[in-house]
Simulated scan of single mutants.
Amino acid sequence: MTTISPAITPELRAWIVAQAESGFPPEEVLAAMRTSGWPEEVAIEALEVTLTEHLQAKGKPVPGRSLPEPSLEESTTRLMADGHEVRVLMAMALPRVVVFGGLLTEAECDQLVALSRQRLVRSETVVNETGGSEVNTARTSEGMFFTRGENPLCQRIEKRIGALLNWPVQNGEGLQVLRYRPGAEYKPHHDYFDPVHSGTPTILSRGGQRVGTLVIYLNTPEKGGGTTFPDVGLEVAPVKGNAVFFSYHSPHPSTKTLHGGAPVIEGEKWVATKWLREREFI
Rank of each mutant, 00 (worst) to 15 (best):
T202F: 00
A114N: 08
Q118S: 15
P182S: 11
T200Q: 11
G208F: 13
R139C: 06
L120F: 10
L104I: 12
Q176C: 05
L204K: 13
E129P: 03
T130V: 10
G149C: 08
G199S: 07
S133M: 12
H190Y: 05
L153P: 05
R96N: 06
D110Q: 06
P201G: 02
P152C: 06
N166D: 08
S123R: 12
A114R: 09
P201H: 07
Q155F: 01
G183Q: 10
T130Y: 14
L94I: 03
R160T: 01
R96T: 10
L178V: 15
L153D: 05
Y192F: 15
F145P: 11
Q176A: 05
L115S: 04
T140Q: 06
R181D: 15
V126N: 09
S123H: 05
L175E: 00
N171T: 04
H190D: 00
R181N: 14
L165E: 11
N136V: 11
V98Y: 02
V177F: 14
E158W: 02
T200M: 08
T140W: 00
R117N: 07
D191F: 01
Q170W: 03
G149V: 02
S123W: 06
V196T: 10
A184W: 06
E150V: 06
V169A: 13
V196Q: 14
K159P: 10
R160K: 01
V127H: 15
P95D: 02
C109M: 03
E108V: 11
D191E: 08
T105L: 04
P168R: 14
G207R: 05
G149Y: 12
Q118P: 02
Y192T: 10
Y186G: 01
